[in-house]
Amino acid sequence: MTAGAIAAEPLGVACPMDLGWRYASGAAMERFLAGLRERRIEALRCDGCGRRYLPPRPLCGDCRLPLDRWVPVAAAGTLEAWSVYRLPILDGRTGEPRPTPYGIGLVRLDGADTTINHLLAETDPGRLRIGLRVRAVWREELRGALDDILHFEVAR
């Protein structure tokens, strides 16, 4: 047998991992999430360049200035990029595969200068395009979490 040749099917070693981490959301994200409970969306505006960050960041990376000026943002905006996903990816919150297909989009909400990632109600690629107007669909019982917005739907 030459070096490196495999005589038989290699034996596998299963290493299931069951790990958990507890993340502090940070003051800016805490206020953002608390706002969702009241259907309020806020961005942080940089005093240097004027860029309105959503989701809010603690610091403007370009100007290297701490951010603390909150500005209101609408629950509707413009689709900047989209994809319809068909692989059964794990839902981080449930550990279960997410039902497919699902739409995912980058949405620039009116009043923000960056886009947010969120789910799209529309899963037909033929009905999605960049520039479409979309609006948030809120969960009935709000709890101050990212999925207080269930998804964005096309405003027709």
């Binding site: 993340y23 502090a24 940070g26 003051a27 994200m29 603690p58 610091l59 701490p66």
Partner: peptide, 11 residues
């Protein structure tokens, strides 16, 4: 236990 986020603590 620091109640701040990692970026806040690092900053």
């Amino acid at each position: 236990a620091d109640s701040r986020s990692i970026p806040e603590m690092v900053l």
